[in-house]
Amino acid sequence: MTAARLAIGITALVALGWIFAAPAHAQTPSAEDLRAIDFGKEIYKVKANCQFCHKWDASGDTGYGGIALSLRNSALTREQFIEVVKCGRPFTGMPYHDRFSYTDKRCYGMTLDELGKDAPPMGEFLSAREIDAVVKYLFAKVVGHGPATYEDCVEFWGQNTRQCEPMKK
């Protein structure tokens, strides 16, 4: 892939990210899916620390973590989410999480040397199973779900904290 094609691809991704997505149609998750969603939440919250930049409710943020987009109204598909988590987003602060990204041409056909200072930062390295779980979590709880509620907050943080009090109606 040439740099020009990469730029077009990234532009499309950025554009997609800004379009409000229709709420995902809920299906009854299997026990295995529930385990994966919970596993994915821990990766979002702690291991990959996605919340540092995107906030706990994935509504996006500014500050030291960079300008992080809201994932709640993202129109990306699951496959596109997986690609962004694996490869990060060149030209932005969104880190890559596949250890081998940019060591070969698996991400946008580019290597780290070719991207130079436009390469995304290096995030916590995640396995394919972990990336799948974090995307499952995002689609189950975040993407297309509208603004977070008090109940969402308690589900994320638990009962043993004052963190959700300001959201209590």
Binding site: K55, D61, T62, G63, Y64, G65, G66, I67, G93, K117, D118, A119, P121, P166
Partner: peptide
């Protein structure tokens, strides 16, 4: 903007 929300008016970017 509610109390406890980020109030940074932007972000930093460190690529080097």
């Amino acid at each position: 903007i509610n109390p406890r929300e980020r109030f940074a008016g932007g972000a930093q970017k460190t690529t080097q």
